[in-house]
């Protein structure tokens, strides 16, 4: 059986917000180390991988590995019934077709209980090769959100170029072009810092609508990392104490 007690429903709500536009159904793979989810969008252009560490829960027990097939729209509805600071327990029996969610109010005696139907999901899990990336950019997640939202007003794609100068995001639209250069900052201890580690110049083009989707994870984590090598998928990584959410996005190819 699974029993996982989270300090705050808000964490799950934010996670769901960060993946529900990409994926409709997904297996939450539970084992004694925690909960993992890996899913691709319908067009197989983007992949999201989530990990929640067992140690990050107030209480965590999972006797044997079990997949919980979840419709994310349904889970979003059930989570809307929780206050952000409700203590939240997820429970499922072995071979169960129901996920039980209990919300305990922090400052009152309210206890709410919901049962959600689980489903069988055939998911084609992919092996993600260990990659040495040629460039790693670390920046405030809110800045990343801003850049991709701004440029998505102009065009469908963005070219991301990393050089010694900094990281440049450029988009060409029918009516307007735009580019944003973010220079490396001196003080990399600052939470607003932009850090660039680079072995070689990289330049890649991606679809902005996916990046806008990924950037919703900014609510989980103040920093984001972009990992890039020429001609391989971009990795956008948000690490938030209790685990991580990572997105992979296949590049667009030349004109």
């Amino acid at each position: 059986m699974l029993e996982a007690k989270l300090a705050e429903a808000g964490t799950l709500k934010k996670l769901l917000d960060a993946i529900k536009e990409l994926v409709t159904d997904a297996n939450f793979e539970c084992n004694e180390e925690g909960i993992n989810l890996q899913a691709m969008d319908n067009s197989h252009v983007a992949l999201v991988a989530v990990h929640l560490e067992a140690a990050g829960f107030k209480r965590y027990r999972c006797d044997r590995p079990m997949p919980l097939g979840v419709n994310l729209t349904s889970l979003t509805k059930v989570l809307k019934c929780a206050k952000d600071d409700d203590i939240t327990t997820l429970k499922a029996a072995d071979e169960a077709d129901v996920l039980n969610l209990v919300y305990e109010a922090k400052n009152s005696d309210r206890i709410a209980e919901y049962d959600m139907k689980l489903m069988d999901i055939d998911s084609d899990t992919l092996g993600i090769p260990d990659t040495e990336y040629d460039a790693r950019v670390t920046m405030p997640s809110a800045e990343f959100t801003r850049v991709v939202r701004d440029l998505s007003q102009l065009g469908e794609s963005v070219r991301i170029e990393v050089s010694k100068e900094g990281v440049r995001f450029a988009s060409e639209g029918e009516a307007a072009n735009g580019s944003v250069l973010m220079k490396q900052t001196d003080d990399d201890e600052d939470t607003q810092a932009i850090t660039i580690e680079m072995n070689q110049h990289v330049s890649l083009t991606f679809s902005l609508k996916y990046l806008v989707n990924f950037s919703k994870s900014a609510s989980l984590c103040p920093r984001v990392q972009l990992m890039m090598s020429n001609d391989v998928p971009l990795l956008v990584a948000y690490d938030f104490g209790q685990g991580y959410i990572r997105y992979y996005l296949a590049p667009k190819i030349g004109d």
């Binding site: 067009s43 252009v45 992919l126 092996g127 083009t205 391989v232 992979y248 296949a250 190819i253």
Partner: peptide, 14 residues
Amino acid sequence: KGGQKSLANFFGPP
């Protein structure tokens, strides 16, 4: 205009 690659071009079965 360029085309969109699929992740299947890069990631294989586990």
